[in-house]
Simulated assay, not measured.
Amino acid sequence: MTSVIEFFQKMNTIGRIGIFVGIVASVSGIILWAILNFFNPYSAEGISDATVKMTFLGLGLPAIFGFGASVFRIKWLMYTVFIVSLPLSMYLAGTPSIFKLFLLVSVCYLVSAILMKTDKKNKDI
């Protein structure tokens, strides 16, 4: 754990912002996924198990991997998280609800990956 903290202290500001954006996007994605499936104010009859599984694979799992990619500065994984979450996020962006924010979360994955890549001191990882 100390190696992660030491590396974070050695990073440029842009790399720190990239990690912060990735963590915030991932946590927001997990919260939005939980609201979508378990506390959905737009669905009175409930959500089927198939929908929960599909949204977990398309939105929940990428958010979890995005968190790990942010903490451990894995840029290629963050790009993958963006690509995997984008189709379902774009679909939800067409709905008249709070779930339009999933598209913002996906864009933040991309921004985080770009910022982590542009950090000059982070080239070796």
Rank of each mutant, 00 (worst) to 15 (best):
M1K: 06
M1G: 01
T2Y: 10
S3H: 06
V4C: 00
V4A: 14
I5Q: 02
I5M: 08
E6A: 06
E6P: 00
F7G: 11
F7P: 06
F8M: 06
Q9A: 06
K10E: 08
M11F: 00
N12M: 05
T13E: 11
T13W: 11
T13S: 10
I14M: 10
R16H: 05
R16C: 14
I17A: 13
I17V: 14
G18H: 06
G18C: 04
V21T: 12
V21L: 13
I23F: 05
I23L: 12
V24T: 10
A25C: 08
S26R: 02
S26I: 06
V27R: 13
S28A: 15
G29F: 05
I30V: 14
I31N: 02
A34G: 05
L36E: 03
N37V: 08
N37L: 14
N37M: 14
F38M: 01
F39I: 09
Y42C: 06
Y42D: 10
Y42V: 03
G46E: 11
G46R: 04
I47W: 04
S48V: 01
A50W: 09
T51G: 15
T51R: 10
V52F: 02
F56C: 02
F56W: 05
L57Y: 15
G58C: 14
G58Q: 14
L59I: 10
L61T: 08
P62K: 03
P62C: 04
A63R: 01
I64M: 13
F67L: 15
F67A: 08
G68A: 12
S70I: 01
W76E: 14
W76Q: 13
W76F: 13
Y79D: 03
Y79S: 04
Y79L: 12
V81Q: 06
F82K: 03
I83N: 01
V84H: 09
V84C: 04
S85G: 12
S85N: 12
S85P: 00
L86T: 13
L86D: 13
P87K: 02
S89N: 14
M90C: 12
M90Y: 14
Y91N: 07
L92A: 10
L92N: 04
A93P: 00
G94R: 04
P96T: 02
S97N: 12
S97Y: 07
I98L: 12
I98S: 09
F99V: 00
K100N: 10
L101G: 02
L101P: 01
L104W: 00
V105M: 06
S106V: 02
S106I: 03
V107I: 15
C108I: 00
C108D: 11
Y109D: 01
L110C: 08
L110H: 10
S112H: 06
S112D: 01
A113D: 03
I114E: 09
I114W: 04
I114M: 02
L115G: 09
K117C: 04
T118N: 12
T118C: 10
T118D: 08
K120I: 08
K121L: 15
K121F: 14
N122H: 13
N122V: 01
K123E: 12
K123L: 02
D124K: 15
D124T: 13
I125K: 15
